[in-house]
Amino acid sequence: MRLIVKVLALFIFTLISNYSVASKYSFIRLTVEKGLSNNEVNAIYKDSHGFIWFGTLRGLDRFDGAEIKPYTDKFSEPVENILSIEEERYSSLLVSKLLAKPLYEFYTRLALME
């Protein structure tokens, strides 16, 4: 009888703990099919406005929690191989990318709110 009570208590505890963990987190798979410029993501940054920025092999994308908006065409030159994203004052992003030669970072400013 004690064994049945212990097994039942363990089962209820496991059920409750699994339910509470599952309800806290939600995952969405972001892919090229959902608007990402490339599936190879090198940099992820959450800005002060709550947007999540992805630096990919083929460009820069902004995710607002519902949809992905590409920002690759906002630059004066092609943006590929983004390595890092940082926020600067006045709602600007510093985006660095890998250049062919030499291997230095290239910084460009991009307004967050349009």
Rank of each mutant, 00 (worst) to 15 (best):
R2T: 10
R2Q: 13
I4M: 09
I4S: 10
V5G: 07
L8N: 03
L10W: 07
F11Y: 04
I12D: 00
I12A: 14
N18V: 06
N18L: 04
S20P: 05
V21S: 11
S23R: 01
K24D: 09
K24T: 03
S26E: 04
L30F: 08
L30S: 05
L30M: 00
T31W: 09
V32K: 09
E33T: 12
N39M: 01
N39E: 12
E40G: 01
V41Y: 07
I44S: 04
H49E: 13
H49V: 08
H49D: 11
G50R: 08
F51Q: 04
I52L: 08
I52H: 02
T56C: 05
G59H: 04
L60K: 08
R62H: 06
F63A: 09
D64S: 02
A66I: 04
E67N: 04
I68V: 15
K69P: 07
Y71T: 03
D73A: 08
D73H: 14
F75L: 03
E77Y: 12
E77V: 08
P78N: 06
V79N: 11
V79R: 15
S84Y: 13
I85L: 08
I85N: 06
E86G: 01
Y90T: 06
L93D: 05
L94T: 01
S96F: 12
S96L: 12
S96W: 11
L98R: 13
L99K: 14
A100H: 15
K101C: 05
P102A: 04
Y104A: 13
Y104E: 15
Y104M: 13
F106R: 14
T108N: 10
T108A: 04
E114P: 13
